[in-house]
Simulated scan of single mutants.
Amino acid sequence: MSDRSTDQNAELALLLEVSGTPKPGNVDREREYDDLRFEHFLAGAVGARPGLELAAAGERVGHAFERAVEGMSGQSGGNTQFGALLVLTPLVAAASADDLTTAGVERAVDQTTVADAADFYRAFEHVDVAVDDPPEGLEPLDVRRGSEAIPTLEKRGLTLSDVMAQSADVDGVAAEWSSGFERVFEAAEGILDDEGPVADRASRAFLRLLAAEVDTFVVTRNDRETAAEVQRRAQAVLDGEEDATELAAEFVARDVNPGTTADLVAGALFVALERGLVV
Rank of each mutant, 00 (worst) to 15 (best):
S96A: 15
A123P: 02
A103H: 08
P135D: 06
G77P: 05
A130V: 11
A165C: 01
T101K: 10
F124C: 06
D132T: 08
V61A: 13
F124R: 01
V105S: 08
Q75E: 14
L158A: 05
G74F: 00
V127W: 07
A149S: 03
G71Y: 07
V87L: 11
V143P: 15
A130C: 05
V92Q: 04
A55S: 14
M164W: 03
L160P: 03
D128Y: 04
V114C: 04
A84G: 13
V143F: 05
E139W: 12
V127P: 04
A130F: 06
E136W: 00
P151A: 04
V92P: 08
D133P: 02
S161H: 13
F124K: 06
A115D: 15
A57H: 10
Y121L: 14
R67N: 02
L91M: 07
Y121T: 03
A84Y: 01
G157A: 12
E139M: 12
G62N: 03
A118E: 14
A97K: 14
M164I: 06
E148Q: 13
A130T: 04
A149T: 02
G157Y: 13
A115T: 14
T159V: 02
L85Y: 06
S96T: 11
S96E: 11
E66T: 13
E125Q: 14
D133T: 09
P134S: 06
L54Y: 08
P134L: 05
D116H: 09
T159W: 06
D133F: 00
P134D: 10
G62L: 09
D116M: 09
V129D: 04
L91N: 01
R145G: 09
D119H: 14
G77R: 10
V163F: 04
K155L: 09
T112L: 12
M72T: 02
A117T: 07
A115L: 10
G146C: 02
V129C: 06
T152M: 12
L153H: 02
R67H: 11
A117H: 02
Q81N: 15
G146N: 01
A55C: 13
L88F: 06
P90Q: 02
T80P: 01
G137Q: 11
E106M: 12
A130S: 14
L54R: 15
D110G: 12
D132Q: 10
A165F: 00
S96G: 08
G62H: 03
L85F: 05
V131F: 00
V129Q: 10
G58S: 12
